[in-house]
Design a protein around this nucleic acid. Structure first.
Length: 203
DNA sequence: ACGCCGATTCTC
DNA sequence: AGAATCGGCGTC
């Protein structure tokens, strides 16, 4: 599949793209080596219509990448200490992204464990959005990297379709009830669901 | 300029 | 349940 076709696929609204991304792999090559993660849990974020989105209130230096062309990486700092990674979706000019919440490390397990800690179980190496980014060695300077034409970071489509479940998003206060979290059904690398303590009541 | 809060994670 | 830790954004 050409990167042109993949980019068109990613240029649709993020709630549609999210489920497609399950089973895809993301590889990051650094001086330390390569780590590949197969995605098992993702969350869609829209732009102007989604109060949980970083792009809800328009373009800022932080979220600018979300408004650019699909297929690039949007990285942000969470709680002042954790990097989190997104795949930019949707047509250019319209903010939209899919947060990478969890995956299975299918290559570079030793390097991923070195980054995450010796006592971390294999299945937990990339469980949780900050853990996934940490396992891959993704940091703020990777913000904006093209995942389809780049050398260091590469996103590749799944070889087979996975059966998946959907449900409310994790951690967000507003818009938490939109069923925009997708995960591979019964997969042990999926993060355990915790609704934000500050989430607005459902309904 | 100031203060609050977050698309989190780990530990107690 | 609480801490770690800082940039973004609303408010004064």
């Amino acid at each position: 599949m050409s990167s042109q076709i993949i980019r068109e696929q990613l240029s649709r609204p993020s709630p549609e793209v999210a489920a497609d991304l399950l089973g895809w792999t993301l590889t990051h090559v650094t001086g330390e080596g390569a780590v590949t993660v197969q995605l098992t849990e993702v969350e869609a974020y829209d732009g102007g219509t989604d109060p949980a989105s970083h792009a809800y209130r328009g373009v800022t230096p932080r979220n600018a990448v979300m408004f650019g062309r699909a297929g690039r990486l949007y990285v942000y700092l969470s709680y002042g200490l954790h990097w989190c990674s997104n795949v930019v979706c949707g047509p250019e000019g319209q903010a939209s992204a899919v947060l990478l919440r969890a995956g299975r490390v299918v290559d570079g397990v030793e390097l991923a464990r070195h980054r995450r800690g010796d006592r971390v179980l294999d299945r937990a190496l990339a469980r949780g959005p900050a853990c996934l980014s940490r396992a891959l060695g993704i940091v703020g300077s990777d913000d904006g990297a093209d995942l389809l034409s780049g050398e260091a970071l590469r996103l590749m489509p799944a070889t087979s379709r996975m059966s998946y479940s959907t449900g409310p998003r994790v951690g967000v206060r507003r818009g938490a009830s939109r069923p925009w979290r997708c995960w591979v059904t019964d997969d042990d690398t999926v993060s355990s669901y915790r609704r934000s303590p500050r989430a607005e009541p459902p309904g």
